[in-house]
């Protein structure tokens, strides 16, 4: 897919563990792992909103479009 998820970059910037983020935004660790690995086919606005709120960032910081892939 040509949408790249930069969630691990943002987590590293905020010095937060993915487990902690999953617990705070209320999604399972398995689902967060799917999102981080780029296997996810879709993301709900509510999930995106929760991630942005928790990491204090914009959706563009997490999602990136690349025409190469």
């Amino acid at each position: 897919m040509s949408i790249i998820v930069n969630l691990d970059v943002m987590l590293a910037k905020r010095k937060m563990k993915s487990m902690a983020l999953a617990d705070k935004i209320g999604i399972t660790r398995a689902n967060l792992s799917i999102l981080k690995s780029g296997k996810a086919k879709a993301i709900r606005f509510s999930t995106l909103e929760a991630i942005c709120k928790e990491l204090d960032c914009q959706p563009s910081d997490i999602l990136e479009y690349s025409s190469n892939k």
Binding site: I27, N31, I34, L35, A40, K41, A42, I43, R44, T47
Partner: peptide, 8 residues
């Protein structure tokens, strides 16, 4: 079904 399962 796959898309539904892979929606986060």
């Amino acid at each position: 079904k796959e898309e539904n399962e892979l929606t986060v």
